[in-house]
Simulated assay, not measured.
Amino acid sequence: MREKMERRSFILLLIAVSIAFGLILKPFGGAIFWACAVTVIFAPLQRWLLRKIGDRPNTAAGLTLLILMAIVVIPVILLTSAFVSEGVQFYQRVEAGEIDPREIMQRLRDAFPWLDQVLVELGIDTQNLRERVSQWLMGATQFLARETLSIGQNTFSFLISLTLMMYLTFFLLRDGNQLIKLIIRALPLGDERERALFQKFAEVTRATVKGNLVVAIVQGALGGIIFAILDIPGPLLWGVVMAFLSLIPAVGAAIIWFPVCLYLYATGAWVSATVLLAYGAGVIGLADNVLRPILVGRDTKLPDYIVLFSTIGGISLFGINGFVIGPLVAALFMATWQIFMRDFSGEEQPAKPE
């Protein structure tokens, strides 16, 4: 009886200190998450370096971090700096009245008067709608500019998070295998199940980060190039925004280029508008429709509609980190139910790890 009470008390203590430790780490959740994700992605490189230089884990982890800095961190910092600079210029043009969202809305209304009739038939108050859209456009441009300024003002906080992420990544690269073995020993789920879940975590994280980032870079670059060619203000700014929005499957970058296309039609720039429409649907959209299923859906082994809903849901709950966390939770959900059906429902599970 006493032993049973001691075990229960210890389990309660274990839960309490685990929750307390989680709360302590909560402010650094983003840095910890990305350290884990980067470790999963660059672990094959670290293992390759270990084979080349021998059993020197500190050196291999350090070289891996240097390569990470060279191909990811430094380019992102340079791009962010350019993005902030162009965002400040855009904000100044809005404040100076050179760019007027209400004027843009009025030109769209004048160019497409049939929209009013369609909206009336749908029971939508067009006058209030125009006011709301104008207010939204003004608010969106000001919000974008404020966030751009905020990035510049919060450089110190960003550098602290980046430093913590890189610091933790070094130790995860060096000691990751031992940590996984320790977790497998500690969790009471069954070693085989835990290894399957860890493998799924690695597969999905690698696929979503690499796949979505490749799609984002491609679509952002394509969008920025066509905006520059057509002499649309702020091509770098809008290219980066399209890259972020392309993390949302199906719609993504079209949230930016399609309204710009309508505005070009409204202002009489028919050639530029037609070029942008054809380019957006045929080139930018093709990059999403071709690359995402290949790089994300195939490697995560998730249906396209699951990837779509889990990505949007993840972003709505967790912000920018959600484009990885959403599909990851969906994949672990499906993997857990597959294990349950195999081990507890008597169903055969023919799928084998490749």
Rank of each mutant, 00 (worst) to 15 (best):
D175E: 09
L14R: 11
G62K: 00
A253V: 00
V17A: 01
P233L: 05
D343G: 04
A207N: 01
E147M: 14
D231W: 00
G62C: 00
L245M: 13
L236K: 07
F21N: 09
Q117L: 02
G313H: 03
L332F: 06
P75L: 02
V324L: 04
I74M: 10
R7G: 07
K210S: 15
R298I: 01
L50A: 13
L173F: 12
I71R: 09
G313E: 03
L23G: 07
G346Q: 00
W270V: 11
G152Y: 00
A287L: 06
K26E: 14
P353C: 04
V84W: 04
L295G: 13
V240F: 12
E103L: 14
L173W: 06
K301Q: 12
G346T: 00
L286N: 13
I217W: 15
V275W: 05
V241R: 04
G190D: 06
A186F: 01
R47C: 08
L179C: 02
W34F: 14
L25P: 12
V275D: 09
W136S: 13
P75Q: 06
L25C: 13
R107N: 05
I184F: 03
L12Y: 11
Q117G: 04
V120I: 07
Q46F: 03
T169D: 05
L79D: 09
G223L: 06
I11Y: 15
L137R: 11
K200F: 06
F171A: 07
M165G: 11
T155Y: 09
L129N: 09
I41L: 15
F21P: 09
M242Y: 03
I232M: 12
W48A: 15
T163A: 15
I184P: 09
T64W: 00
V324Y: 02
G322Y: 04
A202R: 10
A111Y: 11
L262E: 05
I41Q: 15
V120D: 10
